[in-house]
Design a binder for these strands. Structure first.
Length: 459
RNA sequence: GGCGCGAUCGCAUAGUGGUUGUGCAACGGAUUGCAAAUCCGUCUACCCCAGUUCGAUUCUGGGUCGCGCCUCCA
């Protein structure tokens, strides 16, 4: 029985799908004007894990993760680059897919682009206007009248009064209330034709929040099971989505809201605005992507996750232990769910996606295997697979490394050195054998003698 | 100012009203020509102050510190 923490109720709840055996899930994805950073990596990996676990649990999942391809920052960036919006967004969508693929993130069932759903957004805005929740402001933007929507602030635990008290928003440009947000931005003369769509309120483009409501409704229906995203989207983005969808449809929008914690650097949120972010591809130059995935899943999805080289190094060593246990064994990869470790694994995952405990089970399996119980090899591999881990050849993982690109030593060179050392050992020239080993060690290559020969791996 | 989250062994990260988890690191032993890997063992924590309790790291209240949201942000 799966329980998950629902941001809306602020407690763990038993997950009951709307339709037996099926789950409909929407996750807020990327705004594509730059490379993804580690924070994006976390959202993608976390909800990939969620989708995998739901499927492993026998549910048919429809997973939607949107792409925001129209927005102020995109327009600005395209202008700076003197390139069409579409060229810019296409480029970064490709880059995003490269990053996601590297991290073992499976493609969602749908990746809708906002610009493909403008008519649906306009329909929804029209409905909101009809319901008395949207109005055309003096500056010709169409705005959502937040005060007319009862229950605004329920998700984020904010009251309209408190928001006003701490208000730091610019003086309203035509808004009736500073809290009101834009549904439809009227077109400006200096904007490219590419970002102008006709509408009954005049030419313009969608506000940010409306796209998710419209696309989720179109692809999953007006009410669905799970909606996820980064913690920072809880307010105002998700609060506004609720106001839009419930305001338009007159019934609840989402049953379970999930928010993943931030990635931090030096105990500060990693973000574009703070400038302390690392892009995924930057990190992947120095760390194996599976190490990054492991690093993310080793922490609970709702906890903050501190990034540092030391922590990634630690994660690499830990993952190496798992792969080392798998080395020299072939095992079928089907989970036997009646086996005790698998039961613990399931219990951990069913408790709000407790990947840290699930990973712990993996280490216990590795220990059992190292003690000689090779019947558990298949379990380790198969449970690893549930998390999207441990599917490579152990040797391939162990011989790849942080320095793989620049230590300049090819496998052939290393093998040749090993052969030379074996010869030296045979001749009882241990000084020479040790010299060769130390030399390789200085290049980050660790040798391991075994009855069946000498193996090597990268430290 | 409003709202919320967190404080666990050297580092990291789980979890639990009483049996003290996991990874990395460290130390001792086994193994090894020596190593590495592995195994066995050691070290063994729960911010502070009250309260509830037979018993609290775990529950309640207060405090301190850190962080997040309230503005674009995964």
């Amino acid at each position: 029985m799966l329980k998950l923490y629902n941001t809306l109720s602020r407690e763990k709840q038993v997950f009951v799908p709307m339709e037996a055996g099926k789950v409909r899930m929407y996750v807020c994805g990327m705004t594509v004007y730059d490379y993804c950073h580690l924070g994006h990596a976390r959202v993608m990996v976390v909800f990939d894990m969620v989708a995998r676990w739901l499927r492993t649990s026998g549910l048919a999942v429809t997973y939607v993760r949107n792409i925001t391809d129209i927005d102020d920052k995109i327009i600005r960036r395209a202008g700076e680059n003197s390139e069409p919006i579409r060229a810019l967004t296409d480029r970064f969508i490709t880059a995003m897919h490269e990053d996601a693929d590297a991290l073992g993130v499976l493609r969602p069932d749908h990746e809708p682009r906002a610009t493909d759903f403008v008519p649906q957004m306009l329909d929804m805005i029209g409905q909101l206007e009809k319901n008395g929740l949207a109005y055309l402001a003096d500056n010709r933007d169409v705005c959502y009248h937040v005060r007319s929507f009862p229950g605004y602030g329920r998700l984020s635990g904010k009251s309209i009064e408190d928001l006003r008290a701490g208000e730091r928003v610019d003086v309203a440009e035509g808004k009736r209330d500073p809290l009101d947000f834009v549904l439809w931005k009227h077109a400006r003369a200096d904007e490219p034709a590419e970002v102008k769509w006709p509408s009954s309120w005049g030419e313009g483009r969608p506000g940010w929040h409306i796209e998710c409501s419209a696309m989720a409704t179109r692809l999953l229906g007006p009410r669905f099971d799970i909606h996820g995203g980064g913690q920072d989207l809880q307010f105002p983005h998700h609060e506004n989505e609720i106001a839009q969808s419930e305001g338009a449809h007159g019934h609840p929008y989402v049953n379970y809201w999930m928010h993943n914690g931030f990635v931090r650097v030096d105990d500060e949120k990693m973000s574009k605005s703070l400038g302390n972010f690392f892009t995924i591809r930057e990190v992947l130059k120095r760390y194996d992507p599976e190490v990054v995935r492991f690093f993310i899943l080793r922490a609970h999805y709702r906890s903050p996750l501190n990034y540092s080289d030391a922590h990634l190094d630690d994660a690499r060593h830990a993952l190496s232990r798992l792969y080392t246990a798998l080395k020299d064994h072939d095992g079928a990869a089907m989970v036997d769910w009646d086996e005790p470790h698998a039961r613990r694994f399931r219990a951990a995952m069913d408790d709000d996606f407790g990947t840290p405990e699930a990973v712990e089970v993996l280490f216990d399996l590795a220990a059992e295997i190292n003690r000689g119980d090779t019947t558990l090899v298949g379990q380790l591999k198969a449970l690893g697979n549930v998390l999207g881990l441990l599917q490579r050849s152990p040797t391939a993982f162990l011989q790849s490394g942080p320095a793989a690109q620049d230590d300049g030593l090819s496998a052939e060179t290393i093998e040749a050195r090993i052969a030379a050392r074996v010869a030296a050992k045979k001749a009882k020239d241990f000084a020479e054998a040790d010299r060769i080993r130390d030399e390789l060690k200085d290049s980050g290559i660790v040798l391991e003698d075994s009855p069946r020969g000498t193996n090597w791996r990268r430290a």
